[in-house]
């Protein structure tokens, strides 16, 4: 295992390259998911606000 991690002496190069790739891909996943969900949430909110209040019935007014 430690031999695997040592990468034949190239550990800093190999693991930093893979580490940065992992971070960038995870950031991509997070921002892309947010880009999909945010507009839907905004739409759901505005739909709530725009929904017309129910008018009182004639009996209730009397």
């Amino acid at each position: 295992m430690s031999e695997f991690l040592a990468m034949g002496g190239y550990a800093p190069y190999v693991w930093s390259a893979y580490g940065i790739t992992l971070v960038v891909v995870l950031l991509n996943i997070w921002t892309a998911r947010r880009a999909r969900i945010r507009p839907l949430e905004r739409l759901a909110r505005t739909a709530d606000e725009a929904r017309p209040r129910r008018q009182p019935t004639v009996r209730q007014v009397q």
């Binding site: 892309a32 880009a35 999909r36 945010r38 839907l40 739409l43 759901a44 505005t46």
Partner: peptide, 24 residues
């Protein structure tokens, strides 16, 4: 993912989007 978000932003008045908005 990004395309779906972009479609919602561009089509926000469309009726067909309502059921997807309900889900979130």
């Amino acid at each position: 993912n990004r395309l779906q978000g972009e479609i919602v932003e561009r089509e926000h008045d469309a009726r067909w989007l309502r059921r997807f908005a309900e889900a979130v």
